[in-house]
């Protein structure tokens, strides 16, 4: 059991990285990986929200929707849960942890439209994970996403030192190329674990 969970975690972080293999969460990935600091902030916010929302969505789907035969509306339910959770976390943080709020408060509203969050909940349904598996998978995926964005952001900060980038390539173009090279590197992990 423990080994299985560990494999699941490693798979989610490395071999099937949600950003570099499934290409999810790309909008914030492209726009926020210009600086290392914002990338890290967004990464932590994603880890927190993804783990929390999938832990809430699992019981809602399996204990509420499935017994009542209402799986068909799970898209709507999931997206509302995510939006509500993000709002709630934001309010709680503002009230009780103002320092934390200052650190990654600005990223929270953006997270609702980060497809990583919804994707993890959808994968959980498609792959029929149990509750603990879901949490491990969600945490692993979010850690993998953060790792990818931090690596790409770090490289992009250093890119300025290299020299002139072609005009049309500046910004999103070069970020995507960097991400492509990192994705190529991550393919090297492919044979590491078997599921």
């Amino acid at each position: 059991m423990v080994l299985h969970l560990f494999t699941l975690f490693i798979t989610a972080v490395l071999t099937q990285n949600i950003a570099l293999t499934y290409l999810l969460g790309m909008c914030p990935f492209i726009s926020l990986s210009r600086s290392l600091k914002t990338a890290t902030g967004m990464g932590f916010a994603v880890i927190f929200v993804v783990t929390l929302t999938s832990a809430i969505n699992w019981p809602i789907y399996n204990l509420l929707l499935v017994p009542n035969g209402a799986e068909i509306i799970y898209f709507i339910v999931f997206i509302i849960v995510i939006a509500a959770t993000v709002q709630l976390v934001e309010m709680l943080m503002e009230r009780f942890f103002p320092i934390l709020q200052a650190a990654f408060g600005i990223f929270l509203p953006l997270i609702t439209v980060n497809c990583t969050v919804l994707a993890v909940s959808l994968f959980m349904v498609i792959r029929e994970y149990g509750f603990i598996e879901t949490i491990v998978f969600a945490f692993g995926s979010a850690v993998g996403w953060m790792m990818a964005i931090v690596i790409v952001a770090g490289i992009n900060e250093k890119l300025k030192l290299i020299g002139e980038i072609p005009k049309g390539m500046k910004g999103p173009g070069i970020i995507m190329t960097t991400a492509g090279i990192i994705a190529l590197a991550f393919m090297g992990f492919a044979g590491m674990v078997r599921i």
Binding site: T21, P166, M169, G173, M176, T177, G180, I181, A183, M187
Partner: peptide, 13 residues
């Protein structure tokens, strides 16, 4: 995935 990244960045360029 890498092919997708490279091609889209080429298109954007």
């Amino acid at each position: 995935a890498p092919g997708a990244f490279f091609l889209l960045s080429l298109f954007i360029w």
